[in-house]
Structures are given as C-alpha cells and as structure tokens.
Design a protein around this nucleic acid. Structure first.
Lengths: 339, 339
DNA sequence: ATGAAAGCGCTAACAG
DNA sequence: CTGTTAGCGCTTTCAT
C-alpha cells in the first residue's frame, strides 16, 4: 500500500526504475525483459508494496483469479455448508471465492449473477433456486458457469453437478410407505419459486405409484420460515402422520414446532429431512434424511470449472446418487403401534 | 446485455442517440441535460439493455454500492448466521453484500480484505479472528470498516459492535461454579490465532477469582475441528467435569465426541457453548450457551457503516451485553449427585 | 530488450 | 444545455 496510504501504481515503479510503464508491466509478469531487469523491477515493486490493481486489469480484460459463488439461501444450513465447501475447494486450486446470497429470491439470484459478471469473476458456481430465465441464458453464454444441485434449463452451462432427486424422493417415500404412513405432508421451498422441479414431480409420481396421499405445501426456507407453517399444519385435526421436509433446515423448524405443540417425534409424528446437514445426527431425535456428499459435489464442481477455464472443454455432467440415512425421527404411525 | 451477447456501452448509446458520450453519461444519471433528453436517453438505454459497467466506474473512482463482508470462518455456524444477517440487513439499505470466508486463517483474512478493497467495495464489515496486523491499520485507514464481535486493535475503524465477552465468560464460569464444577476445560479457537483476546483473559481472571482450575485448550473451529480433540480430552483418566466451548459449533463437535465415547451429557459431563446458535435448543441435550442478539449486532453494524458513509461521522461504538441461556446440558457433577 | 501510443468504459473539469 | 478533453491503471500491438 505504500507509505502515503495511496496505492502504488505501475507508473511509480517506472519512475523509480527509470524504465517505461510498458517495460515494468512485462517485467512484473516475468516476460520479455532481460533476467536482470526482471529481478530488479520485481525487487523494487516488492519494496514499494506494489500489487496490481485488479480493477484496472479487469477493465483491460483478463482473468481475475476470483470465482463467484451464488447460493440460493444462506438462511438454509445446507447452502451454508456448501458455500464453505466451495470456498475451501477453490482455495485449494489457488482461486478466491466471492460468495453471494440470493436469500430465496430468484430475481435477486439473477441480479447477483450479473453483478458478479460485472466484477469480472472468472466463473460462476451456482446452486440455483430459480429456473433459468432469459437473463440467465445470455449470462451463462458469456461466463463459464457450473450448477450444483439444480439446473438452469436452457442455458449452456460449463458443467453440471446434478443430484438424483428423483431417487432421493423415491427412497424417502418408499421408506415412509414401508413404515405404514399413508398421509404425508411435503414441505418444499421450491413449489413457488421453481415449479416443475424433479423433486416435486417425483413426489407426485411416487405418491401415485405407492398409493400415498401427499400434500405438497409451499414453505419458506429456513427455521423461521417453516415454523409458523408447521405449527399451523400440525394443529389441524386431520394432520398427516408424517412430514417430509425438502431441506434439513425446514425439518428443524418443524421439529421446533412439534416441541411447542407437545408432539413427540417419532411417536406422534414422523419427520424426514433432505440433504443431511452435519447437525441432523445431533438433534433430538436424530433426523432421518437424504445424504449427497457435499464434499464430492464441491470438489467436482470446482474441477469442472477449472477444466473449462483451462481448455474450454465441452459441458461436463455428473449425477450424484443419494443415500437415505435412517435415524430416529421416523417410525410407524401410532395407530399401527397401538395404544 | 444486448443482442450480440456483448455488453452495451455508453458509447453505443451515444451513437444511437446522436449525442456525445458525456451527454449520455449525465443523462443516464439524470443530471444537467434537459428533461426531454434525459427521458429519451434513458429510454434508449433501456431498450438496448444497458447497465453501467461497475468496473469502469470503479476505476474512475466512486461508489460501487457493494459492501464486503468478511467472516472469520464459514465453518462456524455462528459466522454463517452472521453472514446471512448482514447480507439481509445490507439489502434492506439498498446495498449488496459480497461475502468472503477467512476459513480460520488470519493471513487469509487480511488478504481477502485487501482484495475486497481492490474491488472497490464501499466499506467492510468484518468479524475478525486475527488481531490487527500492520496491514489492517493501513487498509482500514483507506476503507470504512466496522468490526463485529472482535477488535482490530490499533486500527481506526469507522465503527465497532463489541460483545462484552468478559461478562459472558464470567456468567458462564459463575454458573459452572455454582453447580459445583471445579475442573473445567475451555475449548477455544482464539488461543493461537488471536492471543490476548478479552474472552480468554476473562477465563483466567475469573478462574482465579472463583478458585477454578481452568485449562484452556486450543481448538480448531467447527464440528470436525473439535471432535478429535474432544475425543482425546475426554478419554483421559483425569478428565474435567465440565467443558466450556468458545463457540456453539465447537460444542456440537464435543457433543458428538461424547456420543462416541458413551458419555452422557449432562450426567457424565457438563457442556457449555458460546453464541447461541438457533439449533442449540434443538440438539440433545439442549445446549446451555451465551446469547448476543445477532440481529441487533447486524443491524447496528450496518447502521454504523451507512452513517459513516453518509457523513464521515466519528467512530461509533456499541457494546452488546450477553445473556446466559441455561438449558439442559449443564448440571451438577456426578460426584455431587452421588451414585 | 525496450518504448510510444492506443484503448478498456466511465466521469469530471472546463469550455462553449 | 451540450461537447471536448483528459485520465483512472493496466495490457498490448507495433515500432525501434
């Protein structure tokens, strides 16, 4: 930062060394100039505390070494974990992460993506909540983008780390069916914001196949979002015997509501989450949920992006299989257990 | 974004309207030009899908409308919550958040701050892990910075949202003392990374005052960081009767270890956290911890920053008082309860 | 091996 | 009210 508090520029180094701006520019990057000059210039630069101004560099065009990470909602615990995992993985590859939180709003999600593009990030890693709108298609065409756990349909992404939601949902519903549940409420954040998502379609399809009555209830992300709703849902006379939450965070909110209502889980109500957040095994009762290996997802996503950046490779795609983790929050409904 | 996929520039609008670049620049911002021209230019701009390039704007100098948020570690649940709260609060004020994760590394923390400064964020909101190094002092002098829950000693920050850690620690230790605990382990992430922090000093001081034996054990942030350590600590013959974790995340890791070792909480071991994460009341057993009102902290921090941005006001400071939340994870040690 | 000059997109001082 | 000119810091032809 230099002594005066102001930023050291390439020009000051030029004056200091008696070279031209051009020469310094090359020398700093170790190009063209004689070895001696390169060493000298870099020494001076270090002494003066020089760092290239990324903004000027970006304006000129060229890579910034930072990648934008957009998560659907930092209110959701799983997205929090994902953001951290991506950050860490990027850093392993020498890249810096800039994280943006769409806070459950598809319009904001797109705006953030635009802003990050404007900031000249080298690429985008996004766990989308909204489907691709027109804006996304154009944006993705300009900026290498890898999606995680959701698709931007119609957009030509650089890579896709997909989760096999259909299987995940099927496993959960089969599990509930086997336990004897027939009346199930599904709490999902995606209904309104991202209609036609595979997960919700799978619910409908599997319900029909298994002969279940599944009501899909739109639900805000996160603890605070799901609590009032769950309170309402569970206070009804004809309440379901099982609640399947499309995110562990939502399940936590539901669990909280059960406490307040004096409902015991799983004795009075069976509860299932989605995504297997690390704390799901520590809550009481430990939550039955679906695991996707977040580390593998993060690792793959970053690899896809790097590959694309390196060689402009064709679109890569991987589908991560779910694994149902049965814990204590699921049991047979009480009318089967008897009084 | 324009039809060709390229970005629309101010010059293209100038050509389209037959005006000069300058005129367009003013008109777009609604300055100087005649009302008619302003309307016409803005209409054309809209039609062509123009958005000002923030990079060019930043290079020229001027505000970007984005604020950098740096959290000590996104592996820590409390920091995750803080990041989200700050994002939301900033958005309420029409500002955008760019979140960066220092991942427990003070050097990275400073580097991220530099990078954000380079990106021309309007200000910095930081929950620091490291103390102020020389770099911070200079940086903060150039860029309005508000600290939250930690200090950058020696740096002239724009505002400070401090937590009264001393009281918080004192309350916890008094609580443990009253229950009959005398041998306590304190798991803290700050020992090595941020020595001399008030919280750790308070531990030593209060321990002396109350006649407690408190061993402070350095501990990585987060679930995975604290688990192996806690496993080790709790396997010892002379293990403490209570463990005080300087973060709820660390406590969760310890709780996990207890499960693995077959130790019951609080019967065999008393556990206390710090920060009161929303899930602390849902884990089993519900965690005794210290609450600081994260929303108030976020709100105040953003207000401080905005105020400073608006009028360059003098440094503001607030101290948030802790409140001990006693839940089920604390009890008298077993040798008092008897066999 | 080195330098002069142009330009990325935008804003602002200074004329008209 | 509108246009000319200069410049933010850097990279990149194109000369020398």
């Amino acid at each position: 930062m230099g002594p005066a508090g102001k930023r050291t520029t390439i020009r000051q180094i030029a004056e200091e060394t008696g070279l031209s701006v051009t020469a310094v520019s090359y020398a700093l990057r170790g190009e063209r100039m004689s070895a001696a000059t390169i060493v000298r210039v870099q020494q001076v630069a270090r002494d003066m505390g020089y760092t290239a101004d990324p903004v000027a560099r970006a304006l000129r065009g060229g890579r910034s070494g930072t990648v934008g990470v957009i998560v659907g909602s930092l209110a959701d615990f799983w997205h929090q974990t994902l953001a951290h995992a991506l950050q860490r993985e990027l850093r392993l590859h020498g890249l810096h992460a800039i994280i943006a939180d769409a806070d459950g709003d598809p319009a904001l999600e797109l705006e953030l993506a635009r802003r990050l593009a404007d900031q000249r990030v080298d690429g985008l890693l996004v766990a989308p909540i909204g489907p691709a709108s027109g804006g996304w298609v154009e944006l993705v065409a300009r900026l290498p983008t890898v999606t995680i756990a959701g698709r931007l349909i119609g957009a030509e992404v650089a890579g896709e780390v997909a989760f096999d939601q259909t299987s995940g949902v099927a496993e959960v519903l089969r599990h509930l069916h086997a336990l004897g549940h027939r009346q199930i409420a599904v709490l999902s954040w995606a209904v309104e914001v991202s209609p036609g998502r595979p997960a919700e379609l799978a619910v409908v399809e599997q319900a029909a196949r298994l002969g279940l009555s599944c009501e899909i209830v739109p639900c805000a992300y996160s603890l605070d979002g799901s609590r009032p709703l769950a309170l309402d849902l569970l206070s009804q006379a004809q309440r379901p015997t099982a609640v399947f939450c499309m995110s562990d965070s939502i399940a936590y909110g539901a669990l909280h509501s059960c406490r307040e209502l004096g409902l015991r889980v799983p004795e009075d109500l069976t509860l299932v989450g989605f995504d297997d957040h690390p704390l799901s095994r520590l809550v009481e009762p430990a939550l039955t949920t679906v695991n996707w290996s977040i580390d593998r997802a993060a690792r793959t996503a970053v690899t896809f992006l790097k590959d694309h950046l390196a060689d402009g490779a064709a679109q890569r795609r991987i589908v991560i299989a779910p694994s149902l983790v049965v814990r204590r929050s699921t049991a047979a409904p009480s009318y089967l257990a008897g009084p």
